[in-house]
Design a protein around this nucleic acid. Structure first.
Lengths: 153, 153
DNA sequence: ACGTTGTAGTTTCATATGAAACCATTTGCA
DNA sequence: TGCAAATGGTTTCATATGAAACTACAACGT
């Protein structure tokens, strides 16, 4: 057996995860890096948390959702959504009405001020996405889309 | 202009992000889903947080790291690492010594108890990874690896 | 040797988070 | 109709988190 080298590898009998090749680990690093870059963009201009931005992005895409539907679309829990909405409504970025046929439900929409922020942030988010995708060639981008479709299904 | 349909799409002049095709959003959902599945596995058997598991996994792979090096490897901040280590040392899962030539540094290693947990959890984590990869064929798996290599570089 | 600057790690403090309890309303059904 | 169960949403409470301040030690120049 050779003499142990400096950054000592853990003993072989334990079979540690090779994190640098472990899919969940790599996905986590990649995802956090990208999301944080986008968050830095909008946090430097507006006082918006990541959860608030996600809610706004969903409401931009789907007008009139209820809070529960926002939670589904964002994959956030309903408490987080409730709090994000409280802040957004308070700040005048989201309008909240009560559903006609069900007084429990809210009917949520971006206000004009909310849209103004959205229209400034969305292009920055798209620019970040382009930056990431620029590291790939056309063929790789097609495969990535296909692979994500399958993994998310 | 046609009459508006039920789940009203937001007005076109605002160009909302199409989240279902937006890379950062899709990566975030995928990564969180996988990490949470693994966390459910070890949390059901041991009282370990996600940050604690990440520290353990890194120490399994690289014995004798300092806290700062753990922070680098896990992409966690040093406060989170410091606290995770405090709990792990307290619970007897990690041994902490002082570096010979630099008394500021810790020299961190999994204890026997830590290794026992590692050796139980690591195979479960690998099984989850296999579950995910099972959705892909061999060609797609090769592309995924190549694409992640490029995106993470 | 001595003071300045840098680094490892912890503590403090203010904020964010999630589970569970809660309130109001609606639904299902006797 | 009336009442139990379910649902949308908020509040409470205990815990997690990160930025900044802090302590201890090391490195460097004088």
């Amino acid at each position: 057996m050779p003499v142990k080298r400096h950054p000592a590898p853990a003993t072989a009998e334990h079979a540690p995860l090779q994190l640098e090749h472990f899919l969940p680990y790599r996905l986590s690093i990649l995802s956090n890096t990208i999301s944080q870059a986008i968050a830095d963009d909008y946090q430097s201009r507006h006082d918006i948390s990541m959860t608030e931005w996600r809610v706004m992005a969903v409401l931009a895409r789907y007008a009139g959702l209820s809070a529960r539907e926002v939670a589904e679309r964002t994959a956030m829990d309903k408490v987080a959504v409730s709090r994000a909405l409280a802040r957004l409504v308070e700040a005048g970025r989201v309008d909240r009405a009560v559903h006609d046929n069900d007084k429990r439900r809210s009917v949520l929409n971006l206000s004009d001020a909310g849209w103004a922020i959205h229209d400034e942030v969305a292009p920055m988010a798209r620019a970040r996405e382009r930056e990431v995708l620029a590291k790939l060639n056309a063929e790789e981008r097609v495969w990535l889309t296909r692979i994500l479709d399958k993994l998310l299904s």
